[in-house]
Write a protein that binds this DNA or RNA. Structure first.
Lengths: 106, 106
DNA sequence: TTGGTACTTGGCAAACTTTCCAAGCATGAA
DNA sequence: TTCATGCTTGGAAAGTTTGCCAAGTACCAA
């Protein structure tokens, strides 16, 4: 038995901060649209801006939120910056959600 | 080909509103702690208040958020109100998240 | 009906989010 | 260097969230 916090069985709110941050990043319809679109492959900011239909500066900050949550990667090529899913398995969370709705729906 | 919005292949932000609402409900560490705890079975508000360590009125509104998102059910028995997961499969979303972190972590 | 326990609601302040516009930085081309 | 293109950053307005306290409702027991 060591003396660290891990020894305590009782979970605390702070233990869920990271998870909450990922959910927070996914808690906006425009950002979900972006994640969904990137499931089909990388896209540049202009493409995503056209997709969501907001100002490019707004889309840029949504992308920053997703990048900071560890969901997206960015890579500059020439004057464009391409965004892609860091791990396609984020999309599984969507499947889980569908399953949840199917179960909890009635 | 019918004339409804379903005919359009192009997804729009509004198509993700419901999903975003569930993620929003899960986007707070205190609410995640509550969901996690209820994975072990129903609990009353006083139990959950002791667990998260905030004012009971605050916990009560967190519970309302989770209930409105379709994640929890409540049932009064005597003077107490018991909360429970509507479908335990919400917890799978947590597993998905762990898997995501494992994949995207490095 | 009076009182206590268990919970919710209303109101408020502080902090955060979402959006736009304007201005800035980075790259490549002329 | 100068310019255009593509993107980010700063700042402001409007809206939302999070927390507490105080007051309200619901039930049970005496």
């Amino acid at each position: 038995m060591n003396i660290t916090r891990k020894a305590s069985k009782r979970k605390k709110p702070a233990d869920f901060r990271q998870a909450a941050n990922v959910f927070k990043a996914l808690s906006n319809p425009n950002r979900l649209l972006i994640v969904d679109a990137l499931g089909g492959g990388e896209k540049c900011v202009a493409d995503l801006t056209e997709l969501v239909g907001l100002d490019m500066s707004t889309v840029s900050s949504h992308l920053a939120v997703l990048r900071n949550a560890g969901i997206l990667l960015d890579e500059r090529r020439g004057t464009k910056i391409f965004y892609a899913l860091k791990s396609p398995c984020v999309l599984k969370i969507f499947c889980c959600l569908d399953e949840f709705h199917a179960n909890a729906g009635e």
